[in-house]
Write a protein that binds this DNA or RNA. Structure first.
Ligand SMILES: [Mn+2]
Ligand SMILES: [Mn+2]
Ligand SMILES: [Zn+2]
Ligand SMILES: [Zn+2]
Lengths: 123, 123
DNA sequence: ATTCTAATGCAACTCAGTTGCAATTAACCT
DNA sequence: AGGTTAATTGCAACTGAGTTGCATTAGAAT
């Protein structure tokens, strides 16, 4: 599905900010915060960004992840996979190959591991 | 290990606020936020609470969990187990029986599942 | 082209968590 | 037991990620 289709099939209007947001996210290999997004698209308004994050999360286009620093990180939700948040260097790693365990009775949307990444463990 | 021992074996001073904090947490079956803590101990100062959460996390006495609402929840870290954060009712469930999967190369401290809990799935 | 309503952009706001600092006090030493 | 000192507390002021109100803009439908 193209970025434009993702927007329109959800009954959302195809606006310039939305197209830009999905274009920027499609080039990311990791979840990014608004701060990082803003460095890649210096004209994006904060409110427009956050409102669209909510809209896109509801439409299952974007997925949000809470870091350990009280910030939210976002990525496209095409490929669903666990994430690892390092409590030392604060990097977020996509665990693309790791399966998401099932939980009886629960509907699991995502998993987040926290701890020390390989780099930070090897000290 | 008694609450007092947890404090003193880490080279921390045995103060009234610290004893109260561990006493309150020892009666909780789920992680709680400062807001909830404050309703159980109305005289606790916010700064004292948060500073001790940091101290206790560093000493592995308390574990913090990020909810999906931009708040942190805390619980004693005696029994380490995964948590489920419901994105609909925002309850946090302790998955006491669920094992924590290993991740090669990573040191995993905790796991958080997000999705819909059984109550919210059954609608 | 006109109309209608969703979405934007800006400024003001919220509120969980942090920080600076003077006052207190637990732990240590004699 | 009393005196010293550095950790901790309590309060008020601050920070900053995210939200909200509202006037303006611009998709989409007819
Ligand atoms: Mn990812
Ligand atoms: Mn728990
Ligand atoms: Zn790391
Ligand atoms: Zn629920």
């Amino acid at each position: 599905m193209t970025p434009n289709e993702k927007i329109t099939t959800n009954g959302l209007r195809l606006t310039a900010p939305r197209k830009k947001i999905l274009a920027v996210f499609s080039h990311q290999a990791h979840p990014i915060s608004f701060e990082e997004y803003a460095s890649l698209d210096t004209t994006m308004d904060k409110s427009t960004f956050y409102r669209n994050m909510q809209t896109f999360e509801a439409a299952n286009i974007i997925q949000g992840i809470e870091s350990d620093e009280g910030k939210r990180y976002f990525e496209l939700s095409d490929t669903i996979h666990p994430h690892f948040v390092c409590q030392q260097c604060h990097n977020i790693t996509c665990l693309d190959e790791t399966p998401i365990p099932k939980l009886n009775g629960y509907h699991v949307n995502s998993i987040t591991y926290k701890g020390q990444c390989p780099q930070c463990s090897d000290l």
